[in-house]
Design a protein around this nucleic acid. Structure first.
Lengths: 129, 129
DNA sequence: TATATTGTCTACTTATTTGATAGAATTTAT
DNA sequence: ATAAATTCTATCAAATAAGTAGACAATATA
């Protein structure tokens, strides 16, 4: 909804909640998190609400996934954005899993980065025809 | 270790635990789950232990991931092996996320299916040179 | 400036999952 | 018979997920 409404003013939490069938209070928290991550902005008071700051084509599924679910990698030791050293594994260079898990991360990362809010909206448009 | 030992008899939980730095009791449960899923087989008593049933090339990361972590898809409504209908979403056909999420699932699924125990072993071999 | 409207923030709840731990029971080779 | 293994069931503590609740702050406008 925020994507479809891009550049067209404020959307009320109440309206999004109703239309998308999400508990209002729950949605508020999600929107707040999106605001802190600078994907959306908001205004309080009468005539306020939320709107998308970034262009739909500049918000990827990877971005949103990282915000709410964290690392795309299956193990922290091959994560780009959430790297952590393994506890069990003694040395990363010698680990036989490491390089293959990087390939898997790349498979997931690439497709999740290519897919954006814009992708969803384009798809939506095609359906409507 | 089970992969490297393929076709060469039984491995003791005790030895795997020690070498791979995994609590023995925890490893036991993992091996048991692998047995129930028919990836490994075991024998009790003296001279017993665990061994891989399937060929290393026939066990993919996708297989193991599904066993321990469940669906590869980001949302159940596009999952091949763990399909569930959305609660929120009214009709799947009209959902603008659906087809794009299938593409994402395919990106992840393909790379996870291509990577097998054999891939890790080959990598291991190369390293040793 | 009072008021209704709307977002902000913090705390809490309930259920599930994760990463184990513990111990008794069972099987098997010798 | 016995020692060595796996098998099974129960339990636990900590973290996470999904959502609820309510006080608080900002803002337009009448």
């Amino acid at each position: 909804m925020l994507g479809r409404n891009y550049g067209q003013g404020y959307l009320l939490t109440r309206n999004i909640a109703q239309k998308e069938n999400i508990p209002k209070k729950f949605l508020e928290q999600i929107l707040l998190e999106l605001k802190h991550a600078r994907f959306v902005n908001s205004k309080q008071g009468v005539g306020g609400g939320y709107y998308l700051i970034k262009k739909p084509k500049d918000i990827s599924v990877a971005d949103v996934y990282r915000l709410f679910d964290g690392a795309i990698a299956l193990v922290p030791c091959v994560s780009l954005n959430f790297y952590e050293k393994c506890d069990d594994c003694k040395n990363e260079k010698e680990c036989l899993l490491h390089d293959e898990f990087i390939k898997i991360r790349e498979g997931a990362r690439v497709v999740m980065s290519k897919t954006t809010i814009q992708s969803f909206l384009q798809h939506d448009k095609k359906r409507k025809k």
